[in-house]
Amino acid sequence: MDQNEYLYFLRRAFDGMINALEELGDELANVEPSPGRTNSAYAIAYHCTAVADYWIGHIVAGRPVDRDRDSEFAARGTVAELKRGLDPLFDRLRDDLRRAGGRTLPRNAPPPSYEGPDRRLTSVGVQLHVLEELAQHHGQIEITRDTLLDGAGR
């Protein structure tokens, strides 16, 4: 797999999420459309940064990653903060993929408690899982944006 092309598509997903968050603005980006039942657009995007960092950094490349998955869904912050974190994230991901060096099998397995594919994946499979998650959540953020902007009378 061409890693530059792969990272290009990950970045497109994140850029789409950021665009939707910018349309919402900081206040609406942190609103849960159905409190207690749905996550804020900000929390979903924040979760995606952790997904990419963990699955590529820790699972594929073996880099230590301190992740608290449950807290990701309660994350709050500004769009600018999230956006500033993307370049360093992509620097890490690029280094991780280089360090993995095309290994067929990932260096680590995810804990059974993490949601994900129900079978052991190759390194390419893990990368596809990350792209799958980002694509799904990008759409979820766009639906959340549309719901919130419609409810805000815009």
Rank of each mutant, 00 (worst) to 15 (best):
T38R: 04
Y6A: 12
G151W: 04
A135F: 01
L105F: 09
D26C: 06
P106D: 06
L121T: 07
L148M: 02
R92A: 09
D95R: 15
E72N: 09
R11F: 10
F14A: 13
R145A: 06
Q140V: 00
G151N: 04
A50G: 15
R67N: 08
Y8E: 15
R99E: 11
G102W: 10
D150R: 11
P33A: 11
Q3G: 01
E27K: 14
A109R: 14
A43Y: 09
F9G: 07
D2V: 12
L128F: 07
L28K: 10
N39K: 05
L10M: 13
G125I: 12
P117Q: 12
H137L: 05
V130Y: 03
G116I: 10
A80P: 02
R107W: 02
E32Y: 03
T147D: 00
E132C: 01
T122P: 09
N30I: 00
V126H: 07
E115H: 07
V126C: 12
M1H: 15
T122W: 02
P64F: 03
D68N: 13
V124Q: 03
N39I: 00
S113V: 11
P64K: 13
R12Q: 14
R94W: 03
Q127N: 08
P117L: 09
L28A: 10
V130K: 02
V126R: 02
L93M: 05
I44T: 14
S113W: 06
T147W: 00
D68L: 05
G101A: 15
I143H: 01
D118W: 02
R98D: 09
L97M: 15
R154V: 10
R67Q: 07
S71G: 06
D66T: 10
D146V: 00
G116K: 10
R37Y: 11
L97P: 08
H47P: 12
Q136G: 08
V60T: 09
Q3C: 07
H47Q: 10
V124K: 01
W55T: 05
A52D: 07
G153N: 02
L21Q: 09
N108K: 14
S40P: 06
V65K: 04
L149V: 03
D96W: 02
I141C: 00
E72G: 06
H129W: 12
G77T: 08
G151K: 01
A41L: 05
A109G: 07
N4Y: 09
G101W: 11
F90I: 06
T122K: 01
N4V: 07
A20W: 07
H129V: 00
A75C: 07
L7Y: 10
L134Q: 01
D95W: 13
N108Q: 15
A152C: 00
A74D: 13
D91A: 15
D95A: 15
Q3V: 14
P106K: 03
L7R: 14
T49A: 04
R94D: 12
T49H: 03
E32A: 13
W55E: 05
D91G: 12
D87P: 00
F9E: 15
L105M: 14
D2S: 11
D26T: 06
H138M: 11
A20R: 11
G62S: 12
T49N: 06
T147M: 07
L128A: 10
F73T: 04
R92D: 11
A50M: 13
G102A: 10
V79T: 14
V65S: 01
R103M: 10
E32H: 08
H47I: 12
I44R: 00
